[in-house]
Amino acid sequence: MDIIVCMKRVPDSAAKITVAGDAKSIEQDGVDHVISPYDEIAVEKALQLKEAHGGTVTVVCLGVAAATKEIRQALAMGADQAVHLKDAGGNRGPLEIAQALAGVIKGRACDLLLFGKQSIDADNGAVGVMVARLLDLPVVSLVAQLDVADGRATVHRQSEVGTEVIEVTLPAAFTVQRGLAEPRYPKIKGIMQAKKKPLEEIDAPAPAGTMALDKLEPPAAREGGRIVGEGKDAVGELVRLLSQEAKVLS
């Protein structure tokens, strides 16, 4: 079984994010980057499927030159090869990203195409399903369980509504979420082997400029809490504020 996983390099969620001088990007200095956590889950699942069924795992990453580090991490975890679509800068909306990814995936052997359900920086949650559409593949999003047998996948799609159990004929695409797999730490040996694995570097097409980022602003600072009183006496006022001001009670 040949599996392709798309992964993105994102700032570590523990990093302190500040807006850079251009007011359009984030300050990169001192910010650690990681594989976007849902993508990392997808990589792990792909490796588990390969270990169980045989085949290959290819990771595809559209990202700046420095993303080699995150790509190497996926290779160190056990992926067989990687394609680095090198991004020289500029803005791309989800559709443009999806077009670029679909462009390099098309024509490659692929029974299973995996994505994280969303990246933890842009949070669009759009790219996976768009790539699937562009490649004419069936797609199930928000997958929390995934089993493969006889050319078919049985998946649990978990959303706030509940869990849907869906069967799909392969090849197919899936966007995955927490609960599907626990990403492994690479072995030291894996890190060394990763350096010898094929890493194809392709220049990404220049952004078409259909989407421009005008301004990036940090979220407004959270206001401090308010103490409305003490003990039983405070309950009435608290309920009033929660229902009328905060509108979390009805």
Binding site: Y185, P186, K187, I188, K189, M192
Partner: peptide, 22 residues
């Protein structure tokens, strides 16, 4: 057990003897 899995219990020994080769 996890460190062993990662190769961290034999860091300075060559791979031929089971180490990490660092």
């Amino acid at each position: 057990a996890e460190l062993a899995e990662m190769g961290m219990l034999g860091v300075p020994f060559p791979e031929e003897v089971g180490g990490a080769g660092l």
